[in-house]
Design a binder for these strands. Sequence first.
DNA 1: CTAGGGTTAG
Length: 496
Amino acid sequence: MFTQLQRAPLPLSHLKTHPPKPPYLLPRHSLTTTPPPPPQDTATLAKLILNTDPKTLTQTHQDPQIQWTQDLVNKTLKLFWNHEPKALHFFKTLDHHHHANFTHSAASFDYAIDIAARMHDYKAVWGLVARMCSRHLGPSPKTFAIIAERFAAAGKPNRAFKLFMSMHEHGCFQDLNSFNTILDILCKSKRVEMAHNLFKMLKGRFKADCVSYNIIANGFCLIKRMPKALEVLKEMVEKGLNSSLTTYNIMLKGYFRASQIKEAWKFFLQMKKRKCGIDVVTYTTLVHGFGCAGEIKRARKVFDEMIKEGVLPSVVTYNALIQVLCKKDSVENAVLVFEEMVGKGYVPNLTTYNVLVRGLCHTGEMDRALEFMGRMKDDECEPNDQTYNIVIHYFCDAGEIETGLEVFGKMGSGVCLPNLDTYNVLISAMFVRRKSNDLLVAGKLLIEMVERGFFPRKFTLNQVLNGLLLTGNQGFAKEILRLQSRCGRLPRQFKL
DNA sequence: CTAGGGTTAG
């Protein structure tokens, strides 16, 4: 079952180097003869669109100051990831009123389709697919993967499957790749039995390869059914297909997930014995697996061993170690490892910072959390909504509501916008001090979130309402009541 | 986006 595998030595891609991009990777406008437009400030743009009435958004699009490029449109769509109605409206108006020199890219269409599918607005999804088709931009297999994934996530795996079976009607033929993709989508949404049945039914037609088998085995690992995973792999070998290092790494991770630590270690020793070319993924799995099981010493031992064996840790390996140190050891040690990785020339990424910031917040070291948050820009990774939510959450928990609000204020002006969680965390924090002014703030936040297309839970709404009535803010409460009638009607009232 | 390693707040 074990085969000899050779891995190329790790390139130095983890080191702090920013090589110049080849010309074909630069944004389109830099290749044209016209001078490049002034750099667009996405944050300013976001504010503009957020605060613009949908009816006058057209004027924003036609503003000669803004040079729309496909890159800028994608960035803006990304920024509005949590503001689905705004994002779609932005996409559509720009599409209707486009200048002769601008059309959406296939990637933007895929993005818009993803957003519409996330809202369960399937009418919009198919409208976009049709428009994409008429522009000869797709739909591509990727487009179908996106829609299928949203179906699966919405608890409609059958529709995901049917979509796959009808792809050819949209000019996109099924092949082994798309077959593997649909299997993976079903497995990742924990519909492993269904994926397995589909696999058994169609493996002959699509000539299932070792990737297909790996996907199904991984699916059984995800639901902690290791015997089933082994069974699938046994069949693969019987079919004459070779298992690869990926196969073994899948199984190794599966044992840890199923809390079978002893079996995981035994399996790893087997891998070593059979010389199947243990790599950085194998070691990262071990570090994370042992760490999560509370075996910090063994996690560190593995980490030291990999370096001795000539396998360089990656940023992901460091992230795994830092995370488990935060959870099961001490934040102090996690910070030491962080400084060590930086000293070696690694560039921490968003996950590194989020893990560490969370760890620091958790032990109440808010100042240091903020300090690390400030360091993020130096490594070209801006804090994202998760980073902000963590910090805001812990400030509020610690009773430092003002600081929480202050951090929230920074969020709106940056390249990351508050999401539903942000509002929920802040609004619930407005009730702990029993100050009447806090309730006014809660009311304001509630109105703002609804204006931005988020839907407060009934509980939140009633909580704010009652609070305002009890503190004698009848007028404000009335305003909220008007909102309530709008919210009650239907979840996405900004339908386009 | 054809498969394996890191984030989601107790």
